[in-house]
Design a protein around this nucleic acid. Structure first.
Lengths: 208, 208
DNA sequence: GTTTAAACCAATGGTTTCAA
DNA sequence: ATTTAACCCAATGGTTATAA
C-alpha cells in the first residue's frame, strides 16, 4: 500500500559538501544522531544538516506501519493486540532497523502531528508563518498547542474523542499537557458562560 | 437506574444459626473472607456460609458501576479515562467500602461471566448440570471455558471481538487462558480444513 | 482437599537528565 | 537549541504463593 524507503536512512538528497544525513553504514559509519528539525513548508526540502517537518510527520506514518506489523504478528500468534503505539512498537521499530525512531521524540511532537491530521490548512498556515519569521522548531512546536485546542472545542473539549475521530491519530496517546490545556479551556468557557448568564441573559436568552 | 444494595454486605438472608455473611461491623467484627461460592441455579439462594453464582455475577455488575463512577470523575477532572476495569477501579471499589471485591477473584471468573453474558441459555444449562452432579465451583469454572470458545468460533475465534461485541463484557480484559484456548482451537480448525482439502474437496467442494 | 485474597513481579506509560 | 539514550518512577496488568 504505502511506498517504503528501503532502509535506515530516508533523508532527502542534500546539497552540502560535507557528508549528508544519508548513507547508512557506507563509508564513515559515523552518524550518531538525527539532524535537527527546522520549520519548513509542505514539500520544502531542508538544506544542510537539517530535517524538515514533512519528514517529521512521515515518522508518524512509519510508526503506524510498525504498529500494524506488530498487530498482525500478535493476531497470528493469538496474543494480546496493541491498539496504540506502545513501548513494544518502538522496540519493534528499532529491531527493524529504524534507529531514528524513538519514544521521547515521537511523544514530543504528537500534538504537532495532531494538528497536521485534524486541520491541515491551519497546520500549513502555521508552518509558513513560523518559517517566514525564522522561528525555531521549539517555538513552532509550542504554537501548535492552541490550534488543536480550538479543534477540540467543537468536541466539547473532549480531546480523547478528537484523537479517536481520526484513524491515523487514534493510535497515539494524548499528551498530558494537551489534555490539561483542553481541561483549562473548558473550565474557562464554562466560567464565561456562567458569568454571562449572571450579568446578562441565561442560556435561553440572547445577552446582547 | 440500577438498584443498589446499601452498604458493605449484600448477602441474602440465611438460615444457619451461627453468624451470617452479613452484618458488617456489627457485633464480632470478625468476618475476614467472603464465603466460598457454590454452584447454584439462577434465583437459587445459597444456604449456609456460601454464596451463589447470581451473587458472583452481580459483583461484575457492581464493578461496572464503579468503573462508570471512575470515568465520570476522570472526565470532570480532565484526566485520562479508563475504558476497562483497571487497578484504579478496584482501588475505588475498596475505598467505597466494597471490600469483598478484589482483582484476583474477578479475574478468576471472568470467562464464567462471559458465558453468562454471551449465551445465557448455555450458562444456565451448565449451572443446572453441575449443580445436579454436585460438582464443586472449580469444576464448573473449568467447564465454562469451552462454551465461550464455541461462541468465539462464530467470530473467527477472535475473542477480543467477542468481548467487544457485548457492552457489559467489553470492559473486562480477556483472560490469557481463554485467549490461548481460542488460538489453539482456530489452529485446529485450520489444520482440519487443510487436511480435508488434501484428502477430499477444497474449500469450494463438499467433501462428503 | 478447595477456595480466597494478599503479595509479588516484570514491563508500562510517562518524564527527566544529560551528553552530543 | 535540539536530540535521545538512559534512567527513574509510580502505577499497571498479570500471576504466584500463601492463608484460611
Amino acid at each position: 500500500n504505502m511506498v517504503w524507503m528501503d532502509d535506515v536512512d530516508d533523508d532527502d538528497e542534500g546539497e552540502e559538501d560535507d557528508d549528508q544525513n544519508g548513507g547508512g553504514g557506507g563509508g564513515g559509519n559515523e552518524r550518531q544522531r538525527e539532524h535537527p528539525f527546522i520549520v519548513t513548508e509542505p514539500g520544502e526540502v531542508a538544506r544542510g544538516k537539517k530535517n524538515g517537518l514533512d519528514y517529521l510527520f512521515y515518522l508518524y506514518e512509519q510508526c503506524r506501519e510498525f504498529l500494524i506489523q506488530v498487530q498482525k504478528i500478535a493476531k497470528e500468534r493469538g496474543e494480546k493486540c496493541p491498539t496504540k503505539v506502545t513501548n513494544q512498537v518502538f522496540r519493534y521499530a528499532k529491531a527493524a532497523g529504524a534507529n531514528y525512531i524513538n519514544k521521547p521524540k515521537m511523544r514530543h511532537y504528537v500534538h504537532c502531528y495532531a494538528l497536521h491530521c485534524l486541520d491541515e490548512a491551519a497546520s500549513i498556515a502555521l508552518r509558513r508563518s513560523f518559517k517566514e519569521r525564522r522561528e525555531n522548531v521549539g517555538a513552532w512546536r509550542q504554537a501548535c498547542y492552541n490550534p488543536v485546542v480550538v479543534v477540540a472545542a467543537a468536541y466539547g473539549w473532549d480531546i480523547d474523542a478528537v484523537f479517536n475521530s481520526h484513524p491515523r491519530l487514534s493510535i497515539w496517546y494524548v499528551p498530558t499537557k494537551l489534555r490539561q490545556l483542553c481541561h483549562v479551556e473548558r473550565s474557562n468557557a464554562a466560567a464565561a458562560a456562567a458569568s454571562s448568564s449572571v450579568t446578562g441573559g441565561g442560556p435561553d436568552h440572547l445577552s446582547f
